[in-house]
Amino acid sequence: VQDICVHLGILRTSYYRWKKDLTQNHSKRQLEKQVGTLCRKHQYRYGYRKITAILKMRMRINHKTVQRIMQKNQWQCRVKMKKRKKNGQPYAVAGNILDRNFQSDRPLEKLVTDITYLPY
């Protein structure tokens, strides 16, 4: 390698840096293919955490790398909108039996409470 580098007029460190970049770029492209395959297989329902968990069964990988790949290629999971309850009139309205007459002749005849704090 040293003789070839001298003959070509480049530094040996430049050759090894170039070689290292080639292997890293190849592994990144291969990882992107795997993430893309998993996203398509699961119909973009899984986020980066779930994809990372699946990939961790096969290899060592960081979740930030998977998140970066998914963001770069717009492979984020499709989120369902949460259904919200419509606030409106209550289902059944109770009649006003006491009509604000809280006086009673016997104890425990009229018991009242306020339940407006309960979400309906």
Rank of each mutant, 00 (worst) to 15 (best):
R100M: 09
Q34H: 07
R68N: 12
I4E: 09
Q74S: 15
V66I: 15
Y15A: 05
W18S: 12
D105I: 01
R58G: 06
V35H: 00
D105F: 02
Y44L: 04
R49D: 01
L118W: 11
N62C: 07
Q71L: 15
I97C: 02
F102C: 09
M81C: 12
Q24W: 03
L108Y: 11
R106Y: 11
H42F: 08
K64V: 04
Q89F: 00
M59W: 00
W75M: 15
Q30N: 08
N96K: 07
N87A: 09
Q43V: 00
Q2C: 11
L11D: 14
Y48Q: 01
N87Q: 13
M81W: 03
Q76L: 08
M81S: 13
I69F: 05
N73Q: 15
T13S: 15
G47C: 01
R106V: 06
T65Y: 03
Q43S: 04
T37M: 05
Q67P: 02
V79N: 04
I115K: 07
Y16H: 10
T65G: 03
K28A: 05
R100S: 10
V112A: 13
R58N: 15
K41T: 10
L108I: 03
Q43P: 00
R84V: 11
N96R: 08
P119M: 04
A92E: 11
L118V: 14
Y120K: 09
Q103V: 14
L111R: 07
K85T: 14
S104C: 09
T37V: 03
R68C: 11
I54F: 01
D114Q: 00
K20I: 05
V6I: 11
G95D: 15
T116L: 10
N62E: 07
D114G: 02
I4S: 08
P90N: 09
Q2D: 10
T113P: 00
R17V: 06
M81F: 03
N96G: 01
Q89Y: 01
D3T: 11
K20Q: 14
M81R: 14
K28Y: 12
L108W: 05
L111Q: 09
S27L: 14
I69K: 04
L8W: 13
R40G: 04
I10N: 07
K86V: 10
T116C: 14
K82N: 09
M57T: 12
I4N: 06
N96P: 02
D21L: 13
P119N: 08
Q2L: 11
H42I: 01
P119Y: 08
Y16S: 07
D105K: 07
L108K: 06
Q30K: 12
V6Q: 13
R84C: 08
G9A: 10
V35E: 00
Y117L: 02
N96A: 05
I61P: 07
R58T: 15
Q24H: 10
R49F: 00
V35T: 00
I54H: 01
L31M: 15
T23C: 11
L31F: 04
S104V: 13
I97R: 10
Q43C: 00
M57C: 05
C5D: 10
E109M: 12
T52D: 01
T116W: 05
I115E: 01
Y120G: 02
D114A: 04
Q89L: 06
T52W: 02
